[in-house]
């Protein structure tokens, strides 16, 4: 009895050890934790109010007073840089959770029942994925109006098919195994078999796929904000700031966009390193 109970525990320990050995995973965690800390507590530590305008001190170069300079409205770029992770770190993870929930449910259904459910849903997904994601999102947001909720729903729905596909292929091999046959013999109902028996066993690929999706969600939200269809002013969001200021880089005002660009880059790369580490640890 104890040995059975200890088995998953030992496996978890092994997994954790593998993750901690992976340099890329640790680097990713440190970067992402840094930005989460900034999103949560940054407001209390920044030298200036990120929304306070000071038109007399606009477009100031980086200096001891304004470490990263000021933007055309005289707002302190360092302060905006620190708190700029707030919105994207709410919207992108929520979109990913939504996409993972829908995708996992659909993947379980199509993989378990096969047949006509599978055919219909799979064809629908193919039709949906026949368009570049960003164009689908653009159309949907023009149709539904711009708000955080719309962005979450649109990105979440756009990612559901790829998660469903991952889950479906994992379920297809699981459903042939003995424990599923045993559960059927016990006359468990289909929902119980799918969500209680199969789901825990397909979790590793789901975790990896949704971490990868999270980095694409950040990609997507940042891009939509840059295009003016995502987060709206006066949010200090990075993509939004870049979109407001990139027209001036030819004039030499590099500090108005460079730091925000580096911030987005570090965040997506951080999440991606975590995904890479998880992939290595869960596959091994």
């Amino acid at each position: 009895m104890t040995s059975i109970a200890a088995a998953p525990h030992a496996r978890r320990k092994e997994l954790l050890a593998a993750l901690l050995r992976s340099g890329s995973f640790l680097t990713g965690v440190i970067i992402v934790l840094f930005w989460i800390a900034c999103a949560l507590f940054g407001r209390h530590f920044v030298p200036y109010d990120p929304l306070a305008e000071d038109i007399l001190d606009s477009l100031a170069q980086p200096s001891a007073q304004h470490w990263f300079g000021t933007d055309p409205l005289g707002r302190d770029i360092f302060s905006r840089f620190i708190v700029g992770s707030r919105d994207i770190l709410t919207v992108a993870p929520l979109a990913t959770v939504l996409g993972t929930l829908i995708g996992t449910a659909l993947g379980l259904l199509t993989g378990y029942f096969r047949g006509i459910v599978d055919d219909v849903v799979s064809r629908l997904f193919e039709a949906f994925m026949a368009m570049p994601t960003i164009i689908v999102a653009l159309l949907a947001i023009v149709a539904l109006g711009t708000s955080k909720t719309t962005v979450i729903i649109v990105i979440g729905l756009a990612f559901a098919p790829s998660i469903a596909r991952t889950v479906r292929s994992a379920v297809l091999s699981e459903r042939e195994l003995d424990y599923v046959a045993a559960a059927k013999l016990r006359r468990e109902n289909a929902a119980h078999i799918m969500f209680v028996e199969i789901l825990p066993n397909v979790l590793p690929p789901v975790v990896v796929e949704s971490t990868v999706r999270l980095s694409y969600a950040i990609f997507g939200v940042a891009t939509l904000s840059f295009l003016g269809f995502g987060l709206q002013p006066p949010s200090p969001d990075w993509g939004l700031s870049i979109s407001a200021n990139y027209g001036m880089i030819a004039g030499g005002y590099w500090w108005t966009v460079l730091f925000d660009a580096l911030a987005i880059a570090s965040l997506v790369i951080g999440v991606n390193l975590i995904a890479d580490g998880l992939h290595g640890a869960l596959d091994a």
Binding site: Y216, F219, I242
Partner: peptide, 14 residues
């Protein structure tokens, strides 16, 4: 892998 997830406008600006 990292370059793949960089939004085009971010790498574009840099």
């Amino acid at each position: 892998l990292s370059a793949t997830v960089l939004p085009e406008f971010v790498s574009g600006i840099i």
